[in-house]
């Protein structure tokens, strides 16, 4: 017998035993995004209107590439967690599982596409 109340035993643990990890992740990533949002808007604002070779050279530079990569990776993982809250609110049973899987798979596909594009532009620029 454990001399501990049921409330104490459950405190800090969700049904998945991960407690407030999702909330904490959203807090940490939101702090990062507060810095990344203005930086990303500046990077994109400077990129729109460039010719094709100029654009490839622009995203081949470290600052635009890193800001864009960080914004999309952190932003999309933040999106997974945020969407999860919405899904938990509105969907039940199989629909919930399907929605979570679609959200996670879609977000990582977006991340992969963006990172691939940025990596290729960086390497093309280096090759020149």
């Amino acid at each position: 017998m454990r001399y501990i109340t049921p409330r104490k035993a459950a405190q800090g643990l969700g049904s998945a035993h991960s407690g407030t990890a999702d909330h904490w992740f959203l807090t940490v990533s939101s702090c990062a995004l507060v810095l990344l949002v203005p930086a990303f808007l500046l990077v994109v604002g400077n990129a729109i209107g460039l010719s094709h070779p100029e654009l490839v050279a622009y995203f081949g530079r470290p600052y635009p590439a890193l800001i864009t990569a960080l914004f999309i990776v952190v932003g999309m993982v933040h999106f997974i967690k945020g969407t999860r809250i919405m899904i938990d609110d509105y969907f039940q049973h199989t629909a919930r599982k399907v929605a979570i899987i679609v959200s996670v798979v879609f977000s990582w596909a977006v991340i992969a596409a963006a990172v691939f594009a940025l990596a290729k532009m960086t390497l093309v620029t280096v090759a020149i």
């Binding site: 490839v56 995203f59 999309i72 596409a113 963006a114 691939f116 594009a117 290729k120 532009m121 093309v124």
Partner: peptide, 13 residues
């Protein structure tokens, strides 16, 4: 907006 911009980046390569 993210989809539009990522499509744009992928199209560039």
């Amino acid at each position: 907006g993210i989809l539009l911009l990522v499509w744009w980046l992928v199209a560039a390569v």
